[in-house]
Design a protein around this nucleic acid. Structure first.
Lengths: 273, 273
DNA sequence: GGATTTGTTTCGCTATACGAAACTAAGTTT
DNA sequence: AAACTTAGTTTCGTATAGCGAAACAAATCC
């Protein structure tokens, strides 16, 4: 099944097209650019766009020579459906709202998907500082709070295998780029039950994450709060960690899962199961 | 461009496939059923699924004869991007949260897309009563609060043309199924600045909607609150309408648009522009 | 254990996705 | 304002690749 023989080439190209349109964002993408970027002729791209447009998956605007394409609202349903499928999104969102209200920070929920931490829900904090916390963003597992937490919660060899596969390159001076440093951090996370991304992905941004655990004690996801490092002096970190862990446990319990204390305690012995 | 000649058939079939998988929801869909439903051979559907799976657009679970497919998290990013493109989603969500907190009811934002009101954001209310308010859902324009509001805000002939195109059939005893009844309701909405779906779509459900207006005074979207009819006696309706209109105006202003009073007043004379 | 059903793989035919080229129309330059 | 450029649209012939038939493998049912 992982075999590359059984693929539909034209569908793959159409997905490339969608990818490029998504990258173009609100500004939209032009036919000629799209065709060139995905290595297709204009008529071919034109036909694909017409097909996607008929389904509402892309919309066009502008007339004549300046027609542009962007993603259409038909994607909304599919994206929401994908989140609903996880079972985590709907449970987490109301609690995330309470967390954001309590600590006054932007909060998120993420799950591991193909080695990356995918953000499936967010609640923007108050104030002018907005973080471009796009849903569906794939956060690198080695330099994001949610990513490190989810890796720390799984058997060590699996975590290392993921790191090897998706990489763990340096992004800032603070990034834990070596497997040794990451392993030590995982150990600390397992003891303290929360992960810290201290300017390891983007300079100036700090992020605290806690795990959400299922019935068997394995981590099904993670929640986090994000803010500017300068707004979170180290002495107030505990006052944020406490509600973070508390609300994470509430989500775990709402899912019928284990609280963090139980899950982390049972992790080492259950790891080989 | 609306011409049906220039289409990519295989892409269209793949989109049918995605549609069916979305319909199957959390339970997932099986290869054989999918192939049959979209009128394709098993090998063809198999290749499409492999292509989609490689991109994370579908995920499979279960082994052997009971393998099932559901939508994958890669759709999340596209859905969020589509909402972000509208410019309305990100502005409306924080205010929607305040609205839900203030009135204690589930709230939503919707936009008109291809004749239907598409829900692009929601905040679930507290309490056990959850409404399956899926994002991306296309609400019929004639029997939903947001739909009727958006139709009432546009030139009457355009509204009628949409109703003719997408239909306006009866769903409950309360549904306004005639164009006359709908027209009268549009007139009332234009005067009172809010729309009511009083068990017109689903029995037992009531919904109040208010408009969000852009700089030129045209409606760019609508927000609504929904609850069980029996929980909202008519004497308390005004106490919900007031914050609804107030927060809707806040969204309009945040977009650089006009408040409802101005927009509705300027509607008739600007209609032919 | 045989029968049935589902997923997987092979393979050959032809439908169809693709590119070349021509066309139209909207900007841009001189 | 005419020549030039650039973008989108349409036509059409061809070779590719998408498709179905058939066979295979593996799991479930009776």
């Amino acid at each position: 099944m992982a075999d590359e023989r059984y693929r539909v080439q034209s569908l793959g190209r159409a997905l490339d097209l969608i990818e490029r349109i998504a990258e173009a964002g609100q500004a939209g993408a032009r036919l000629t650019d799209l065709a060139r970027d995905i290595g297709l002729s204009k008529p071919a791209a034109y036909a694909m766009l017409a097909t996607l447009r008929a389904r509402g998956l892309v919309v066009d605007f502008g007339e004549g020579m300046t027609r542009r394409y962007r993603l259409g609202l038909s994607f909304v349903r599919f994206g929401d459906q994908a989140v609903a499928n996880t079972g985590l999104g709907d449970v987490a969102m109301p609690i995330l709202r309470e967390l954001t209200q309590e600590v006054g920070l932007t909060s998120r929920v993420a799950m591991l998907d193909d080695g990356f931490a995918v953000v499936i829900g967010r609640v923007d904090g108050p104030g002018a500082i907005r973080f471009a916390a796009a849903l569906g963003r794939r956060e690198a597992p080695h330099c994001s709070g949610v990513g490190k937490l989810l890796l720390a919660a799984m058997p060590r060899d699996e975590a290392l295998s993921i790191l090897e596969r998706v990489g763990h390159e340096r992004r800032t001076p603070n990034t834990l780029a070596s497997l040794d440093a990451l392993g030590a951090d995982f150990d600390r996370i397992a003891v303290q039950h929360y992960a810290v991304d201290d300017e390891e992905d983007v300079e100036g941004i700090i992020c605290l994450a806690a795990g959400v655990f299922g019935p068997s004690g394995q981590a099904v996801g993670a929640i986090s709060v994000t803010t500017l490092k300068q707004l979170l002096p180290s002495e107030v970190v505990p006052s944020v960690v406490e509600p973070l862990l508390r609300h994470a446990d509430r989500i775990s319990l709402a899912l019928g899962g284990q609280p963090a204390a139980l899950a982390w305690a049972g992790r080492s012995k259950g790891a080989r199961a």
